[in-house]
Amino acid sequence: MLLIHCPYCREDREEEEFSYGGEAHIVRPLEPEALSDQEWGDYLFFRKNPRGIHHEMWYHQTGCRRYFYATRNTVSYEILETYMVGEKPQISAAEAGQ
């Protein structure tokens, strides 16, 4: 069971308070109608799914109800950082030596 630091509550809280939001930083296309079916399908369904450093969304569902981001290793499950919406990650896969 993960222990997750909510950057809004500024507390380490149990995973049970959160729900997972999948890959972070996927920006909705500004003009969906201008995209081909394939480009739109890419946005809808295709994910990086890396083995290692992953930037992902979490929702503090039974806490502050805020979405935030986490940089987590998908093998060790170590959470390297969490950060607020609008912020950039400090750690990237390259920096983590991957």
């Binding site: 939001g21 920006v27 909705r28 969304m57 929702y59 109800r65 805020r66 979405y67 919406v85 609008g86």
Partner: peptide, 9 residues
């Protein structure tokens, strides 16, 4: 909340 917070804050 998802859309407001992450896409259109």
């Amino acid at each position: 909340e998802l859309w407001q917070q992450t896409e259109w804050p």
